[in-house]
Design a protein around this nucleic acid. Sequence first.
DNA 1: GTCTATAGGTAGATAGAC
DNA 2: GTCTATCTACCTATAGAC
Lengths: 203, 203
Amino acid sequence: MTEQTTEGRILEAARQVFMRKGFAAARMQEIADVAGINKGLLHYYYRNKNKLFKAVFDEAFERFALQANTIFAADIPLFEKIESFVSEYMDIMLENPSLPAFVINELNQKGEEFVRGIMNSKHRPNPLPLIGQIQLEVEAGRIRPVNSLHMMLNMLSLCAFPFIARPMFQGIAQVDDATYMKLMESRKREVTDFILNAIRLNQ
Amino acid sequence: MTEQTTEGRILEAARQVFMRKGFAAARMQEIADVAGINKGLLHYYYRNKNKLFKAVFDEAFERFALQANTIFAADIPLFEKIESFVSEYMDIMLENPSLPAFVINELNQKGEEFVRGIMNSKHRPNPLPLIGQIQLEVEAGRIRPVNSLHMMLNMLSLCAFPFIARPMFQGIAQVDDATYMKLMESRKREVTDFILNAIRLNQ
DNA sequence: GTCTATAGGTAGATAGAC
DNA sequence: GTCTATCTACCTATAGAC
């Protein structure tokens, strides 16, 4: 799967290094080493560290936002939507376990300006369709009277947190990487049931 | 509330800068400026950047672990424990909103060695009492048959994630700092109900 | 396009005067 | 204890040969 073009190999190497170290601790030299090319070439393709980082970050962020928005806006019943959100969202993270922490960390450390730039991009997350749908179900009395904003936050929290807090979790639970992955796999069913039970009315 | 001793003012300044920028992006010069002292003094009190950072991080981590462990091990019924955990844990974070993201970010970026050191410390988080208690309730048939490890993860996720993902959340929901804080305050009740409803048996 | 060499700037840390 | 001055190392970025 190694990229063939130099530009592609640089981007792939940058992904690795930026995700592991974060922007501030990442070194252009290390990216060049991982890519197996000379440091000067990084500046030939991407003028400076910031632009290289932005290329990596934007791609990572959009992958998440796009997938999420597709599910948020899908025209299916709420319970099905919750199930597909949890399952599909956790699948993306399982394929790319360090991506969520990377995005969150950088949003926390870069300044407000950076965050504003991201949030004004075309592919920003837009949970409004889901929030509206939850509200409708509440008003129709078909689920418990939950606050729709908090409800959406709950869904995100339950899916994403275990990946973001992975080092802490593995440290506490004393599990190796393979076990951790299996736990995340089984978590899809567990979280779906948890959410559905929380909002289902007693029949 | 300004610290009187020089050492105290250094530590307070280091807290501010490290929490906002993270270890790698934090500058000793900025810490000195915030503390209103000379850069050389930082090295007089704390030999180097690493030691100063460790002083800040350890204190932050232990504050969280200690409070959590107290609740985890309390000898009270599960439903009360959930309620007090959510309420008290979110209170700590409300008093110190950038602390959870700081701890998580650094655990993600520093190497395995660092994480191992933290997790072997005396005051590491120990959720075993809570996990055992959940398991007992399940076996006794008093709550739904949830997986106790995931259940504990759910509690942590619902409380901590909104603070860790705060920039993203505020960006998406377009809310200012004051509104955000009010939302987190109301979230205590919302999350408690959410969890209890998820595990309560239909009577 | 890709390399070598190096400029230019900055960070952490130390030495030594007061 | 606190400051000034400075050393050394490293990092980003550029210039220029091939």
